[in-house]
Design a binder for these strands. Sequence first.
DNA 1: CCATTTATGTTGCAAAACGCAACCTAGTTG
DNA 2: CAACTAGGTTGCGTTTTGCAACATAAATGG
Lengths: 133, 133
Amino acid sequence: MGKRSGCAINHALEIFGDRWSLLIVRDMAQKGHTAFSQFRTMSEGIASNILSDRLARLEAAGVISRQPDAQDGRRTRYLLTESGRDLIPVLLDIMAWSFRHDPSVNVSPAMAARIARDRDGLAAEIRAKLDGQ
Amino acid sequence: MGKRSGCAINHALEIFGDRWSLLIVRDMAQKGHTAFSQFRTMSEGIASNILSDRLARLEAAGVISRQPDAQDGRRTRYLLTESGRDLIPVLLDIMAWSFRHDPSVNVSPAMAARIARDRDGLAAEIRAKLDGQ
DNA sequence: CCATTTATGTTGCAAAACGCAACCTAGTTG
DNA sequence: CAACTAGGTTGCGTTTTGCAACATAAATGG
């Protein structure tokens, strides 16, 4: 796993520069998903082998953590680490960018306005919901 | 090119959800690169066929524009569109995230502090430099 | 308790994307 | 007009992806 360069953008791309990793983080932040089977239901349709691989990579990168469920031994709980939660503002900015340049995207104008006006406040709200997990 | 979903994050990933596209945008924003041969010198080492493909995709997505050079008919100038320039704040946030969670990355603490304190002002400065092109 | 179902994966295989080196063409320069 | 430069394309082997089937451990239901 030799890194290609010390550039900060490249560093980030080596963690989530693919079509799936950020969608997993999105589902964790937006929907509070924590289970393998929950990620499999995402509308983009991720294959189980790819999901398995991406969860392992995100864990290796320190963006998520994996813990066995105490109540149900079959389950594994995937949670955003501090580093993963810190991606929430980036996710919001990407959503706002997509909306500005293609309003046909599934973002309400109200949400877009909220991100523009108070991104960090919104990020804090999303973060707070995850604290219960 | 059927889209996988209307999600704003997915929309963005269909444009730059790979290991190279954002590095091209980075070189345009950070270094003012406009030529094929300039992008080929990036330290990550992009192959010419991949570069050719990514420039075509970014143009198709409206993030960059391509124009023949008036002075030298061999040259093509690649420039960030408004949509491309609007990615600058996102790039800065990604840089800051990388720095916070891996300080070994090539970002000076001063730059990281500047992004934290005045991201939009910094983005405006970078934008202003591109206006000469 | 034993059969069934659920949750989390792994395996095999075909298709697509990537990476490298060589090659090509139009336009420019000496 | 010969050599060089810029921006690609082509071939080909390697890697990653996507799909479907299968495996395994743990829970649940009768």
